[in-house]
Design a protein around this nucleic acid. Structure first.
Length: 332
DNA sequence: AAAAGACTCAACCGCGGAGAC
DNA sequence: CGTCTCCGCGGTTGAGTCTTT
């Protein structure tokens, strides 16, 4: 174990050279750290702290860099897609924040952890159920996730930067629609700019995407074999696996997934930074299908869950319907 | 307008694993 | 082996900010 031998209050008048600073970082410290890492790279944090002339622990430097200063860190609120992914991944892995963060490019484990504690656990408290309980997980799947999808749908209607969102239009009817009616369902956007898909994607992911064999190390290698879909579209990685799914077939230029027609022209528009379409399979699932069945597909949630949700089957400890009365989407 | 309460999130802490010696 | 150091992770704190009363 490392020990910090000389701690003193920040700004102490007796501060000596060997004292370590604590508390908020100053602009000057940030600048020192940034410039040092730009010259020498990150790692060896204790040595780095000393060499850079920072009166901070290596730990503190590492934290500041990874959680705040690193250039590819995404700012701003988590998107509904990201929230959805967090919920899904947390149900899979629990409080493995760093692992979850690996699947949300630009987001830090700290940020995700904070999100979980301040938003998700708050909901659990309001529902008077334990946040890790099966009851809560059910509530998340049945109420929160579908409503996030709704949000995604709404945001895609108002601004359409993300094609994947268009897939969730009119979910109640979509699964029974003919191909043409589904096509008509997609908002008319004649020849949408192809690159608008990548509005929020850091540059390093372009290179990661467009060149599968490159050695870009900015995005940590995933434990799963397919990386691109979740990195680009904020979807779980196993979505990407559908590109090879035996459930996808083509008939008369119409593609089907689990017997649901998919509008081909839309995933044909999905291109990477070089104009190449690499993502047909991943996008296929995201287009023009019943979002509830998609949810089941994407998030390993049995259809049954959704079909039973929406009724009064899930009540909190006070017999309130959690979905109708207590699930506060404004706090998401 | 002010006080109180709620919320956010950067930063800290302790712990455990990995590697060097 | 045991000890030490470094590193990364998850849990927690608390100052600052926002919202409500």
């Amino acid at each position: 174990m490392s020990t910090i031998t000389a701690k003193r209050e920040v700004g102490s008048s007796n501060e000596e050279e060997t004292d370590l600073r604590r508390g908020p970082w100053t602009l000057e410290e940030d600048s020192l750290l940034i410039h040092y890492i730009a010259r020498h790279g990150e790692g060896r944090w204790n040595m780095l702290a000393k060499s850079a002339g920072l009166k901070r622990t290596g730990k503190s430097c590492r934290l500041r860099w990874l959680n705040y200063l690193k250039p590819d860190i995404k700012r701003g609120n988590l998107t509904p897609q990201e929230q959805l992914l967090i919920l899904e991944l947390h149900s899979k892995w629990g409080n493995r924040w760093s692992k979850i963060a690996q699947h949300l490019p630009g987001r830090t484990d700290n940020e995700i952890k904070n999100y979980w504690r301040t938003r998700v656990q708050k909901q659990a408290r309001q529902l008077n159920i334990e946040s890790g309980s099966k009851r809560f997980i059910d509530a998340v799947k049945c109420f929160w996730m579908p409503r996030l999808l709704q949000k995604m749908e709404q945001s895609s209607a108002s601004n359409s930067p993300t094609m994947i969102m268009k897939s969730f239009n009119n979910h109640a009817e979509a699964s029974s629609m003919s191909t043409s009616s589904i096509s008509n369902n997609i908002p008319n956007s004649p020849s949408p700019p192809q690159r608008e898909l990548f509005m929020d994607v850091p540059n390093n992911q372009f290179s990661n995407m467009s060149s599968p064999n490159n050695n870009n190390n900015n995005v940590p290698p995933s434990s799963d074999s397919l990386q691109f879909s979740s990195q680009l579209f904020d979807m779980p990685q196993h979505v990407a696996a559908a590109s090879n799914s035996p459930n996808v077939f083509e008939n008369n230029n119409v593609y089907y997934y689990n017997n649901n027609p998919i509008v081909q022209e839309n995933w044909n528009n999905v291109v990477d930074a070089n104009g190449n379409n690499n993502y047909g399979g991943a996008m296929m699932e995201g287009l023009s299908m019943d979002p509830l069945s998609l949810m089941g597909t994407y998030y390993d949630i049995p259809q049954f869950d959704f079909q039973t949700c929406g009724s009064d089957w899930i009540l909190d400890n006070n017999n309130n319907n959690m979905g109708d009365t207590l699930w506060n989407m404004d706090s998401m």
